[in-house]
Amino acid sequence: MAAQSPAAPRLPVNFSTRVDEVSSRARLARFIRVVVVIAVAIIMLIPVTWMTLTAFKSRPDAVAVPPKIFFQPTLEGFVSLLTDRRQLTTEQIAEEQKRTDLTWIDQLALSRGQVITGPSDYPQRLLNSIIVAGVSTVFSVGLGLLSAYSFSRFSIAGAGDLLFFILSTRMLPPVVVTIPLFLMYRALGIYDTHFGLILLYTVFNLSFSVWLLKGFIDEIPREYEEAALVDGYTRLQAFRKIVLPQSLTGIAATTVFCLIFAWNEYAFALMLSADRARTAPPSIPSVLGTGGIESAAIAAGSLGFLIPVVIVTFALRKYLLRGVTFGAIRQ
């Protein structure tokens, strides 16, 4: 910085904050905050990172002790996840190696002494997960929104008891009812169907979504709707034009929670589905495969399983972060 001669006209003072003028205490506090945030982020991200790394490791690398951080990445895990394979004898391997029409995928399998017999059912399981979790989330949030609105706005006889009843469906550990449900589903012919799982997850999530959304809708002052009513709208129009836009935050939060529950659900899916409707969670461990644990394949499967939820949460982040009411009713 050049020293200014006293004769020079004074420049207007610029009051914007300059890093070199921030007090050292404030800088220290800021530094500590940043360090803490980074540390927490690292702790949170380690399992995910480790899983991602493992998905790209070869079998020896995946189980190496001490764990390897630098390694030769390979798609072995993904190949074992997405294909069904057969172990070959030494002679068969030699025979196979002579062939020239092998794709890189076949070669990758062959390098482990295996031949690919067909695609695995992982993609189908993932698709089942998407159908079951997606549809059940739409239903539980949609129905939950309507019932939460009714509980919040109308005087319903025995509303308190009803709400308690709805909540009470959550009071018993789900595992307890799996056997009776299994028998019922078999009798009703909805065992191992998408419909069966969607129905179960919808009902199960409904208690949660009614309570959560009721909280959000209670927060929206009635005056907004009443203003719409006197402005010439029907109740349904007022709901659509006023309540719905205002409860987007709540809807987004509820959607994410319901989706995550339905997406991760393991016990019911294991008991109530076999093949046609089986979702991803109970099927990933079944990749465990013959002849040892396929850590890379499991990691790859989990990674694929993670992605849809991340996409949805990311898409809704705008609403999740926004405050409950954007402009307070007063100001």
Binding site: V230, D231, I242, F326, I329, R330
Partner: peptide, 18 residues
């Protein structure tokens, strides 16, 4: 209410915040 052609001004204004 919508059939009465009456306007209502609320104490806390009730302007639609969105």
């Amino acid at each position: 209410p919508s059939d009465r052609d009456i306007a209502f001004v609320f104490q806390f204004f009730a302007l639609y915040p969105h």
